[in-house]
């Protein structure tokens, strides 16, 4: 693997780390497998790109993206809690609807940001070389998100979120409306995912409606890799593990792409299969490694 590929993987790991934190919130904290993320990632990218094209500040564009992601997640939450649609199905419905909405927002399936200001300009102004600048910026975003979530999950509201995922009957009997908690949590999760989408679009210079395909699987793979290698005994540890898992996942992919066995080498299109196999292995692994079973209970 070249240094360039290594740095690229690091950069991707941190920016997708925001998405993985979102997946961690739904999948692990809330016990709510949420496929909305496949739609909210391109949604965030589209909203940020359109906002920048319309002349808004790139950082402000990110808050619009996060807001749009929150709404998308809240819709899934409402479908699940108020209309009693199974969480998986509810999230698939939102994901599909978001495909149309994202194209509507952009007015076409993709939108380039060539020559437009992005958040990368702010870091480049500090004098860092471009390939290091984005990595450093995304690492800061990921660290800030971990710190913010850590604080939030210790607040009164954050604690009800943990309790809703663990024992909804108990927390209802203590006066908490679990419907609201689920709607807000899935919203928060998708806000993070859309934020990642907004950053990715600015980094690669374009938003594309298809850029979200497989987001959930990559997210799950990262969460699982993280907790297998770094543990999940405390919330703090699990949050750091989620970002670390994201970085390792991207490194593993970069490694796989650089692999050559005789005439055989992986194509980028093989990665979805590789990831799916990885997730299956990791989900079956608890029988072998007890560490994982503790995380999912």
């Amino acid at each position: 693997m070249t240094t360039y590929a290594f740095l690229g993987a690091l950069e991707q790991g941190f920016v997708y780390g925001l998405m993985v934190l979102g997946v961690y919130l739904t999948f692990r904290v809330l016990d709510f497998p949420d496929l909305t993320v496949d739609g909210s990632l391109p949604l965030g990218a589209a909203v940020a790109s359109v906002a920048i094209t319309a002349g808004h500040d790139p950082f402000l564009a990110l808050t619009f993206a996060a807001g749009a992601g929150f709404l998308a997640g809240a819709v899934t939450g409402i479908l699940n809690t108020k209309f009693k649609i199974l969480h998986l199905l509810a999230s698939i419905l939102t994901m599909i609807a978001l495909y149309s909405i994202t194209i509507r927002i952009m007015g076409r399936p993709n939108l380039t940001l060539l020559g437009k200001p992005t958040v990368m300009d702010a870091v480049a102004a500090l004098g860092l070389p471009p390939h290091l600048a984005s990595t450093a910026l995304f690492a800061c975003f990921a660290a800030a998100a971990v710190a913010a979530l850590l604080w939030f999950l210790r607040t009164e509201i954050g604690q009800t979120m943990l309790a809703t995922g663990d024992n909804p009957q108990m927390i209802r009997s203590l006066g908490v409306d679990t419907d609201i908690v689920i709607i807000g949590s899935v919203g928060l999760s998708n806000a993070l995912v859309a934020l990642a989408g907004g950053l990715i679009a600015q980094n690669q210079g374009a938003a594309d409606v298809n850029m979200g395909v497989g987001t959930i699987v990559a997210g799950l793979a990262s969460v699982i890799i993280g907790e297998t290698l770094f543990g999940c005994r405390t919330v703090a540890r699990a949050l750091v593990a989620a970002v670390a898992g994201s970085v390792l996942y991207r490194l593993a992919i970069a490694f796989a792409l650089s692999l050559k066995i005789g005439d055989f080498s992986f194509q980028p299109s093989d990665l979805k299969l590789v990831t799916a196999v990885l997730v299956v292995l990791a989900l079956v692994a608890p029988r072998i490694r007890k560490g994982l079973a503790r995380c999912s209970s």
């Binding site: 607040t155 009164e156 509201i157 954050g158 604690q159 009800t160 108990m170 006066g175």
Partner: peptide, 26 residues
Amino acid sequence: TCASMTIEQNMALAQRRGLTRGLAAG
């Protein structure tokens, strides 16, 4: 009770039964 939370976290949740919950420390 919530198995994954500590004794004091569980008690703090119960202490606020029926009260609004905000962004103060749990």
